[in-house]
Amino acid sequence: MKTRLLLGLPAVALLLLFFVLPYVEMVAMSFRAPASGLPFGEGHTLLHYQRALGDTLYLGALGRSLLMGGVVTLLCLLLSFPLALHLSRTQGRWHVVFFACIVSPLLIGVLVRNFGWMLLLTVDGPANRWLLAAGLIERPLRVLFTPGLVVLALVHVFTPFMVLPIATALRNISPALREASTSLGAGRFETFWRVTLPLAFPGVQAGVVLVFVLSVAAYVTPALLGGQGVALMPAIVVRELIGSFAWPFGAALAVVMAVATLSVVAVFTLLTQGLAERTRA
């Protein structure tokens, strides 16, 4: 048995060394002094946090990022619940097909999926041509490089992350519970509202946290589809790191973003913990 536990060592070492330590390094970096010509200098300072928290440019970007994360999460939830419900109610061959439709986007790069939206929604793309032909619009819509498109593409990217935990939670609900509910006089909607929805909540909670965390820090999609108009936190962080070569300040911004995200998650989790505790069967 002891030797069995030793087998975990390489993985633990890998993550400790190249995952945990880098996060520690990031926090440490955020206190380093800046230097010109070099990524960072000697000594420590709190200056970067003062700058990050004192400038409306950064606070605004942070606020926008959190807001966008929230909107994306909400939309993902709205799309994912019916999908997960449908998935949990189909059987056999069709189940596999629908499941494949939902998870296969997970296996395709974010970049490629975003690119698909570019193709569909460019000024002379099929969406615009179809809308023009149908007489629904008079002029082609310019959706490329707008926040709306970024949200749409992020919802597309993260929907599978929301569907999977909810579908798992739904699958764990015994069909006998629904039968019990109907035998006691509850109709379909009442059964859904009083039994299915509360019992799926742990899955919803997990999905919401995951999608929120991932979408706040999403970099590629806004960079590709958002254009210059929308300044979001991840883009600013990357610009500081790669463009301005200001590592300590970039690190400080990243830490601020991480702490803000985790605070939102913590508040959400605390507010909903009672419900989740109860429904964890």
Binding site: S174, A176, L177, E179, A180, S181, T182, S183, L184, G185, A186, G187, V195, L199
Partner: peptide, 16 residues
């Protein structure tokens, strides 16, 4: 079933 007014007791209890 919801209109039948029958009480059902399940094998695995099926308590909510």
């Amino acid at each position: 079933p919801q209109k039948r007014d029958f009480g059902v007791v399940f094998q695995n209890y099926a308590l909510f």
